[in-house]
């Protein structure tokens, strides 16, 4: 049995790591990824040259207005995906846009295929967002822990007490003031540094 030709996807995303993740997922599902572009020179020319069936682009990319122009002026060009919102598939599009994905497709590309590509892209974008959030949280957790250690050291030095006693005193303060431990640590450091 002959396989239908793979759908050609162009990915435009300034975030290289995210684009790489998406590219891998698309390849795994049998799509042909033509290129991954970030900082694009005259994008319109690249699109004409590569002739993708679908372009996946970061919703917040300034290059979207370039693609809009191509779609409005040229029949062959990829057409904005919002087009098929009118064909009753607005949920997929709404979900994609909320995940930060927009897409441009050539006329005639089967809507089931478009949906599956959009679903992959939305999922990868959301996953990446979650990863980034975790990273930020992990970083701030580490920073908090450092603050607490520093405050504990200052309390031990000033009150000549054990580490355990210093920590208990700080935790009591946090409970009394109904504040997170890290914030109590921050104010201890501020006060101690004045003294």
């Amino acid at each position: 049995m002959k396989h239908p030709p793979a759908i050609k996807v162009l990915v435009i995303d300034d975030d290289r790591a995210r684009a790489a993740l998406l590219e891998q997922s698309l390849r795994d599902q049998g799509y042909q990824v033509l290129a991954r572009l970030d900082n694009t020179d005259l994008l319109a020319e690249r699109v004409e040259e590569l002739q993708p069936d679908i372009i996946i682009i970061d919703l917040d990319s300034p290059d979207r207005d370039v693609l809009e122009n191509m779609a409005l002026l040229n029949d062959r060009s990829p057409r904005p995906v919002v087009m098929f919102a009118e064909q009753g598939d607005s949920d997929t599009i709404a979900q994609a846009i909320r995940s930060g994905v927009s897409a441009y497709v050539v006329d005639g590309l089967e809507s089931g295929r478009i949906r599956s590509i959009l679903d992959v892209a939305s999922a990868r974008f959301r996953e990446f967002q979650a990863l980034r959030r975790e990273l930020v949280e992990a970083r701030s957790e580490l920073a908090d822990r450092k603050l607490i250690e520093k405050a504990k050291g200052l309390v031990m030095k000033r009150h000549k007490c054990s580490e355990d006693e210093a920590f208990k005193a700080m935790r009591r303060m946090a409970m009394d003031q109904q504040k997170p431990l890290a914030e109590v640590a921050r104010s201890i450091i501020a006060v101690m540094e004045i003294i």
């Binding site: 919703l59 917040d60 990319s61 300034p62 290059d63 979207r64 207005d65 693609l67 809009e68 904005p80 919002v82 919102a85 709404a94 846009i97 909320r98 927009s102």
Partner: peptide, 16 residues
Amino acid sequence: REASWASIRDKLQLGL
């Protein structure tokens, strides 16, 4: 702050 007019139009359409 939005990067493109397309983004503004889509976000208006979706109620974002």
